[in-house]
Amino acid sequence: MFVVGLTGGIGSGKSAVSQLFEQLAVDVIDADQVAREVVEPGEAALAKIAQRFGSDILLSDGNLDRKALRKIVFEAPRQRDWLEQLLHPLIRDRILLKLDNSKAEYAILASPLLLETDQHLLVNHVVVIDVDEATQISRTTERDNTDAEQVEAIIAAQIPRDQRIAKADDLIDNSGTPDELKPLVEKLHTKFLQKARQERESDFG
């Protein structure tokens, strides 16, 4: 299975790009969605998080208060390290399971932490979605109703923009409009179909 890693900083437009690939019948495994799955009620990870941070970290319906947890871990690096050590192996295992079950021509692993974790080892090709920091902040504050200071802390915790770009096999400039984004994705889709077919031929050759 040919796997494309799709990443970018917060507010860069990973969801928009993922949706365009999904419209082209590509299987997109969203690491953020997987991260939500492993802390759903009934999951062992959620019980461990509640044990460490107290029951106040849970909403009234038993789900994780993700906004409250995000605030805690970005203010306390030691707490973030603990959380990452708990969740990253669980997320990786579930991503692998989803990739194994994919029947598409190729699959995409969309992950904000693709390059910060060992998730990049799961992919054959890296696509980075790029926008400038001011755009990241304005899009995220508008989307999440989050203050700019917290968004800046998230950006600071992610891999620096220049390092992310340096690791890209392909770069998508998403500073334009949605209409400008679609043909960029379609062009990459054609390229990835060809690469996936070449990989299958080499496997059988």
Rank of each mutant, 00 (worst) to 15 (best):
M1R: 13
G11W: 09
I57Q: 01
I159L: 15
A35R: 06
S102A: 12
G42M: 13
I155Q: 11
P89Y: 08
I29G: 05
G11L: 07
L121I: 07
K71C: 04
V73W: 06
V73E: 02
L171W: 06
V17P: 06
A44I: 15
I108M: 01
S111I: 07
D30M: 08
L193K: 14
L114Y: 05
V39C: 03
F21S: 07
K103Q: 14
F21E: 06
A196L: 05
V34G: 03
L6V: 13
I159M: 15
T135C: 05
K71W: 09
V28H: 03
L20V: 15
L83A: 04
E37P: 10
R80T: 09
Q51H: 11
D100R: 12
V127F: 00
D179E: 15
S55V: 15
G205S: 06
L87M: 14
K182H: 15
V128I: 00
A104H: 02
D132T: 06
R200K: 13
N145K: 10
K182E: 15
E201C: 08
G13K: 09
A156W: 12
S18V: 13
I108N: 01
R161V: 12
D30T: 10
L109G: 01
Q150F: 10
K187L: 15
D30F: 06
R80D: 03
H120L: 02
E105Y: 03
E43A: 09
Q198N: 14
N145G: 11
D32F: 10
E116Q: 08
R143D: 13
I49M: 02
I155G: 07
A107L: 07
I108H: 04
I72D: 01
L96G: 04
I57H: 07
E40H: 13
L181I: 13
H88W: 14
G8H: 05
K195V: 09
N63Y: 12
G9S: 14
I172S: 00
D132M: 00
D27K: 10
A50N: 07
A25H: 15
I10E: 02
L184A: 15
I72H: 02
R94P: 12
A134D: 08
V127W: 01
S111E: 05
G205T: 10
I129F: 07
M1S: 13
R197M: 11
L86A: 05
A44W: 07
L115C: 04
F2L: 03
D169Q: 03
F21A: 00
E116R: 09
D132P: 01
L90G: 01
G54Y: 05
T117G: 00
R94Q: 11
D179R: 04
R52W: 09
D144V: 02
G42F: 14
V123P: 00
L181K: 11
